[in-house]
Nucleic acid binder design. Structure first.
Lengths: 249, 249
DNA sequence: CGAACGTTTGAGATGACTCAAGCGTTGTGG
DNA sequence: CCACAACGCTTGAGTCATCTCAAACGTTCG
């Protein structure tokens, strides 16, 4: 079941058995990829989309000096370039961070699904909009949080997403990222990420050790990152610590 | 023709006469709004989506201290909360910046379109993904550019979008925004935005005067902002100055 | 064993922030 | 029609967060 984790645990849009079966049939190929491998390049027309089964992948934009800004990371269960189907051409590069296994779905299959199954189509659309919602949370992170807040917010997000994929117990998880990756995600330098991690460690909030993350104090981490998981549209997000939105009316 | 500007001038997805007519019929109401009016609030279920006909609108997230981070601005022709249809509930607030005219489209109509017209559905999907592509460019802006670069990049984007909506001549346009709005878009303080504008003025690159923007040197502005309009998927973007992507292979 | 990579630390530079005040324009009510 | 309030723009001085440059340390892997 390659599609097992896709849209799992999302509010109101879990797939029916029939829909899941239809997607399974749509897969043309399953492939394994090395770490740090480019999968698709900005501007190239694409004829397949990629469902991530195992590993961590990234999407990023390059600046003039060869520095990167990551615009998304993807975890198992994510349909990571589904948006290439309506868009045809991507505006960014896609690459693996860790070793990964992916399933490829030809756009001709998606075309057929659009005609046959409006219900499933809407769920696929939803999946791409979930990515957009995550983009917005990242905008908040970069625009309004300081270095500690950005790292904290990101770690909360990673924890929440891995938790709903069944890959975190809510406190500890393996995230195959280096401090340099965190820097490219949070718009910081590697050096400063390192200082932030030291601070979080010394305050007994979170430990980041060779791609393994251990959250010692989830509540303080969420507070530091002003994290509210509503944007992840997780079915039951009550279990996750967060900063509650004040209910003004 | 309320839908006149919707997806106008976008690469490969202009609407057919029939599709446009179908959308026109779907409009249930046209409404005018005051400046700085809240239209939708995060977490509220929505049953209609909004097509912007005139004016400028914004989407934003609040931080703990009541500061805002804008995550999108919308110009005439934008279907600004189309994503509320698959998502049902938004993760952010929506408000006008200037006075505005909007057309409302009930989700029941969109539901019908999804069943009847897969082709139009795909174009609507495309429209929401265009917003996501813009989010990504904003992430690049916040994560990798300094203050001057962020403002420059934003002004290039505004110019390009207004140009393809027929509301800029390529150099001068009315953008109903204050310097405080620019600050909320670019993750800066109002004071610093002011200093940046002074610098752009003194260098004869761009003048920003009471919501009127005049670009004196489009090429230098694009260079400062590392602006490449590919992410806007504009049909013929050759006319816009940009930083060319190096063609490495 | 050595190379490659990721992490850690220090010292100094700088871009953006904060606080504070003044200016100009617009709109409104006395 | 004037006065004043409200708002947006402008400027200065001092502070602080993050960056840059530089070097060293630890691990892993061939």
């Amino acid at each position: 079941m390659f599609t097992e984790r896709f849209l799992r645990d999302r509010r109101g849009v879990s797939l029916t058995a029939e829909e899941r079966a239809r997607l399974e049939v749509a897969i043309s190929e399953v492939r394994t990829l090395e770490p740090r491998t480019l999968l698709a390049r900005a501007g190239e027309p694409l004829e397949v989309s990629t469902l991530l089964i195992e590993g961590v992948m990234s999407r990023y934009l390059d600046d003039r000096n060869g520095l990167r800004q990551l615009v998304a990371i993807h975890l198992p269960g994510d349909f990571l370039d589904l948006h290439a189907f309506p868009l045809k051409v991507l505006d960014h590069d896609v690459a693996t961070l860790t070793a990964a296994t992916v399933a490829l779905v030809p756009h001709t299959e998606l075309e057929a699904i659009m005609v046959e199954m409006p219900g499933l189509t809407r769920k696929l659309w939803f999946a791409t909009l979930l990515d957009a919602a995550i983009h917005r949370a990242w905008l908040f992170r970069l625009g309004r949080l300081d270095a500690v807040g950005r790292i904290a917010h990101f770690l909360c997000e990673a924890n929440a997403r891995l938790f709903s994929a069944g890959l975190s117990d809510g406190r500890r998880f393996a995230l195959g990222l280096t401090q340099a990756d965190l820097a490219e995600i949070c718009g910081l330098t590697t050096v400063h990420v390192n200082r932030v991690m030291r601070q979080l460690r010394e305050e007994q909030i979170c430990i980041f050790r060779s791609s393994l993350v251990e959250i010692l104090d989830p509540v303080r981490l969420a507070t530091r990152g002003q994290f509210n998981p509503a944007y992840l549209y997780i079915a039951d997000d009550e279990r996750l610590p967060s900063v509650k939105r004040p209910k003004t009316s």
